Simulated assay, not measured.
Amino acid sequence: MPKKIVIFIFMVALLISAGFFFGYYSAMFESKKPDDRSLKNAETIQLPEETLKPGARIIFITRYKECGHEKRSEMLVDEKYVGYTKSRLQEEFKEWKIESFSNNRVILTKLIDGICEEHYYIGLYEGYVALFQGKPGKDSKLLELTDIKAGILKEEDRKLLERGIVINSKDEFLKIREGLTH
């Protein structure tokens, strides 16, 4: 039995020593933490928001998701917008996202889920050759209806027009239209 008592006393002494060292080191690390009271009493300094200056530029970038094109336009800040902050400008242009803001230049962006106005195709509309804005098979807008009847066209030309011929400009339309009549 004496051997068990010695082991028991040794274990108790070990636990007491471990507790002492744990408490001591915890107290040491706790005292090195910053005092939370000093943070509670600190004042927050609010810097003034940047505002638009006369002569600043606002750049509008419209991105078209379907075709990947970008349309950019720019305006000089007139007296109405001088002094506007980023948040005030965002209220004014709700449908736009402010990509960057400084007192002399702002970039506003908008993403359109569609195609830009630069896409045209030639197709058939009610039996006549027509120019459309858009892409064949998608929502498109009739721009010009010609007096060329589909019935007088060669069969291969008519089949192409039924599917739609994608073109890049109205000038290209004029050339193709002229070729269809000769």
Rank of each mutant, 00 (worst) to 15 (best):
S38K: 11
F60S: 02
K40E: 12
Y81P: 11
N103F: 04
G123A: 10
E99H: 15
A27W: 12
F60V: 01
L142A: 08
E66C: 02
V129N: 01
R37S: 14
G114M: 03
E74M: 11
A56E: 07
A56K: 08
L108N: 02
G23M: 14
L76H: 09
K53Y: 00
S87G: 10
R57H: 06
I115D: 07
G55H: 06
K32F: 11
E74N: 06
N41T: 13
N103P: 13
F101Y: 13
G83D: 02
K80D: 11
P54D: 12
I58L: 14
K33L: 13
H119G: 08
K141P: 03
W96D: 09
G114V: 04
K86T: 11
K86M: 14
A42Q: 03
L108A: 04
R88V: 10
I45A: 05
K32C: 00
I59E: 08
F132V: 13
K110S: 03
Q46P: 07
V82A: 07
E91I: 04
F29Y: 11
I107L: 05
I122R: 01
N103M: 04
D139N: 15
Y120V: 12
P48E: 12
E99T: 15
K86C: 03
D35G: 07
F60C: 03
E79A: 04
P34M: 05
Q46W: 11
A56L: 05
R63W: 15
N104A: 09
N103H: 08
I107A: 07
S31V: 02
I58Y: 09
E91W: 00
H69M: 03
K110Y: 09
Y128F: 14
L47H: 08
S100V: 04
E30V: 07
S87E: 13
F29C: 00
Q46H: 13
I122G: 05
T109H: 06
F101W: 07
G137N: 07
K71I: 09
K53T: 14
C116D: 02
I59F: 00
L47G: 11
F60M: 01
P54E: 15
A27D: 14
Q133K: 03
D78P: 03
E70W: 13
D113G: 08
A27N: 15
S100E: 04
Y64N: 14
I59P: 01
D139T: 15
S38C: 01
L76Q: 14
R37I: 15
D78N: 08
G83Y: 01
G114S: 12
S38T: 11
T62I: 06
I59Q: 04
L52N: 02
E99L: 09
S73C: 09
E95W: 00
A130D: 10
W96A: 06
K135P: 12
R105H: 07
I45C: 03
H119P: 04
H119A: 06
